[in-house]
């Protein structure tokens, strides 16, 4: 009989690891509330951090559920304004970035405004790129969300960080345009292997190009989406 070997890189293990980190923090924060008795500001701050951290974990669980339902073709493609999606993500994440002592900036340079995408899935892609930047951004350096026009007629939505280089095996996998299963980056909880897996699946569903650019001082993860022809009627 063949012996079963536990694959330390199995998708389930990475997912469990990544969800354990925010859950552990939420529990610790809730328990530490008793230390704030008589300090309403402290209680409020801890409460805000609990909400921000648990929302992040819930969103990741929801994204995994969406991945499981992609085959059901429930997510329609429609004309979407990527700037509006990025604004929503930045508004949603600024507090989590603040608690992680990070800054998130936006840089919009596109002159064409609508892409063909699914609103929910594109939101998740940008959200996961941003979480990745939050985890790996360099000390005291901002992360940037950008929207730019491409010469090939597509619009690029990218998130750039100034963190350490992406490991070569991850780079190779993303260069293929697809992350087969969640893989742990740098062997740490809170790593974005799961986020990149989710982003790549959603990009594939939207028939968008998904990739990364390695800079000397960081990484940009991007998704290139086709411009919507709806624009010509405006």
């Amino acid at each position: 009989m063949e012996s079963e070997v536990i694959d330390v890189n199995s998708g389930a293990l990475v997912v469990a690891h990544e969800l354990k980190a925010p859950l552990s923090l939420v529990r610790q924060l809730a328990l530490s509330l008793e230390l704030e008795s008589g300090n309403p500001d402290g209680v409020q701050r801890v409460g805000e951090q609990i909400v921000a951290t648990s929302e992040r974990a819930l969103r990741q669980v929801n994204d995994l559920l969406k991945v499981a339902r992609l085959d059901d073709a429930l997510f329609e493609l429609e004309p979407v304004n990527p700037r509006a999606i990025c604004d929503d993500v930045v508004n949603e994440l600024w507090q989590l970035f603040k608690f992680n002592r990070r800054e998130l900036r936006i840089d919009y340079r596109n002159r064409r405004y609508l892409v063909v995408a699914n609103r929910q899935l594109l939101h998740s892609v940008v959200y996961n790129f941003c979480l990745n930047a939050m985890n790996y951004g360099g000390e005291e350096l901002p992360s940037e969300v950008s929207v730019t026009d491409r010469r090939d007629g597509k619009i690029r939505v990218a998130v750039r960080d100034y963190g350490p280089a992406v490991p070569t095996r991850i780079w190779r996998e993303i260069k293929r345009g697809f992350v087969e299963k969640p893989v742990e980056i740098a062997m740490r909880p809170g790593s974005s292997g799961m986020g990149l897996y989710i982003a790549s699946r959603f990009a594939q569903y939207m028939q968008a190009d998904f990739g990364l650019i390695r800079h000397r001082d960081g990484t940009s993860f991007y998704i290139d989406l086709p411009v919507s022809r709806q624009l010509s009627f405006i």
């Binding site: 923090l25 610790q28 608690f99 809170g190």
Partner: peptide
């Protein structure tokens, strides 16, 4: 600890000490 989200937690739980954080 490289997870900055824990920094506030340590500041409150170990408030009686002088803390230096490294990521």
């Amino acid at each position: 600890d490289d997870d900055r989200a824990w920094e506030d937690y340590y500041r409150r739980v170990l408030r009686d000490f002088e803390l230096d954080f490294f990521h």
